[in-house]
Nucleic acid binder design. Structure first.
Lengths: 339, 339
DNA sequence: TCTGTTTATTTAAACGCTTTAAATCATGTC
DNA sequence: GACATGATTTAAAGCGTTTAAATAAACAGA
């Protein structure tokens, strides 16, 4: 790198003004075709690198979109991110990613960073306990915000997520239909809207079937394989002897199945297990996991689309967008075994 | 947002110059304590947001570090990223992430974006087939580069990765020690340095034990669970009747074990399987996976550290840093069964 | 009171780009 | 040849920071 090539370097070498060069490189119709070609060739020849900071300082558009989720390592979010990435890529936006691990502080720090960088907008799955001010921090500073996966009551921010109550009811009804009566619900928390909705979906489905709801059968816990794995002991030693488990998500379900196998039982025969999300992994688990598709790809795609539209100036009127989950029946659930 | 608060807004409201404000906010000893306090209070009161683009335009330091890997959804990279994240966080650097999915074009586009944004440096696990020019694209434009996980021959760029040949030899020797003689190697490619090293480690271990190497026993394939799962059919129908498999990584091993179970056999009893990486998941798989720890956390931490040091001006002399893998023996391997 | 030092603050010039009004050029018409 | 018209090009004013150099203020020593 001999020396920094900038617009003026090109301009001087060609005897035109920087204005012309700037215009030419961005295909403005104001500059003559021949000039444009000459300029583009020269730019290439000199190895010109567009300086976005300078441009963005001038235009106050950065081409950067921030994305915050709980944990990108969690395949559920990873699948959403994949969809966001592909949509943003198509629109030549750079995206900056961060985990908040449900730390409100880490989330705020990240939002502040985005503000400092002049991010054009942000897509976030808010950390548990996010104060209202933080949620609006971006929006109030001119950075449009879209929520995904988790929603916040009474807030006018576009939100995209699966219909949890409906989805869990699908899974619960499936088990009830197979004859199960003692059904536990494993994993997750009741501190998020998602958590409350899911529990509600489970409760409603049981009630509608005339099955009494026993709060002891609700075993909250980490939303990970490890969490499901560790819940197995507790689950198997319950005096109520549940014959089936509705799990918070696929990870918990797979962990639970591993735990059940360790105990010498066969999931999908001795115990029925449902997952939630339908991760890529669900279909190759052993036994293949009966689960509920939670629309990750749709959530990601639609959220990104919504943000891009908003940036382009369009104004949507609806805030909450619920994606309808769908049942995926595989081998981890079976009719209640006569014992 | 009434109107943008900038340095000059604060300056005017306090009757000082913007220079003083700038200095004060960054704790320069050049400004008097009383003035500094006054300024900081005012900044907070007005809700001032530091404009990094402007600062970075001026200083040509952005505080941004780019990170490119094959696929952040792959837990192997995710574990590395976790370590990088925590190291960079500690040093208040923002990081921008991207997958290249082994597309040289996507990788180049990302590198160009980083250059445009004025990224301070880049940590990359180069895509298969990355041309030399691309590898040096960043470096040649003043953006220090660190390579991780994959290395490139004859190139003076600091590289951090596990010692693959040594690690795979560990796994292979472990199986040989258990009495296995027909050992397949499943998954992965021979197009990367990693691939060649791993195959070499496997071959060398076999040779050293006086076992003839049968190239048919090498089944390359995707480095995913799906890949391992699909390889099972092929693996189980081989005329050579392998009794053990050295897998490219844990994902392939877990997929393979799933496939073996589907066929009614029991991994860890009928067939011995080793993984590679020691992902969090390895220990909760059923059976718990015997594998080789590949130092993900170390690779990430050291790579980030090296980049930060380089940015701080220190000059390291060594280029290739090999992390020594370690054997983790669990239940997926067992002494050769008399049949 | 004057000079020299130290401390505190300000001035002014970048950093590299975009944008728009105004200037220049080329062309065609009468 | 004068003039209108349309096509190109350019000058200049920022965008919000940082920083070297200049200035001002305060203080001490003689």
């Amino acid at each position: 790198m001999a020396q920094k090539i900038k617009l003026s370097t090109i301009a001087e070498s060609l005897g035109v003004s920087t204005a012309t060069v700037s215009l030419a490189l961005r295909d403005s119709p104001l500059v003559a075709d021949t000039t444009r070609e000459k300029i583009k060739d020269q730019a290439r020849a000199l190895g010109y690198i567009y300086n976005r900071r300078a441009a963005s300082l001038r235009t106050s558009r950065s081409g950067i979109i921030g994305v915050v989720v709980h944990d990108i390592m969690n395949p559920f979010y990873a699948e959403i991110l994949r969809a966001i990435e592909s949509e943003l890529d198509r629109n030549r936006q750079t995206f900056i990613l961060s985990n908040h691990y449900d730390s409100v502080e880490k989330q705020r720090t990240f939002l502040e960073t985005l503000l400092q960088l002049g991010s054009d907008g942000v897509i976030m799955s808010p950390a548990i306990g996010t104060p209202r001010d933080d949620l609006l921090l971006a929006e109030n500073n001119g950075m449009p915000t879209i929520l995904i996966a988790r929603s916040v009551p009474d807030i006018d921010v576009p939100t995209f997520r699966g219909d949890d109550a409906y989805g869990i009811a699908l899974a619960t009804n499936h088990l009830i239909g197979l004859g199960h009566r003692v059904i536990a619900m494993i994993g997750g928390t009741d501190q998020t809207s998602t958590g409350r909705d899911r529990y509600q979906g489970y409760v409603d489905a049981l009630k509608k079937a005339g099955i009494e709801v026993d709060p002891v059968l609700r075993i909250p816990g980490p939303r990970t394989k490890q969490g499901g794995f560790e819940a197995a002991v507790n689950f198997l030693s319950m005096p109520q002897k549940p014959t089936a488990a509705v799990c918070w998500n696929d990870l918990v379900a797979i962990g639970l199945m591993n735990g059940i196998q360790r105990a010498g039982l066969v999931p999908g025969r001795d115990i029925s297990v449902t997952g939630y999300d339908d991760l890529e992994e669900a279909s190759i688990a052993t036994p293949a996991l009966t689960t509920v598709w939670n629309g990750q790809s749709e959530v990601g795609r639609m959220a990104a689309r919504a943000l891009l539209d908003k940036l382009a100036g369009s104004h949507a009127e609806d805030y909450l967008h619920l994606i309808k989950p769908e049942m995926r029946i595989r081998q981890s659930t079976a009719p209640l075994h006569p014992r």
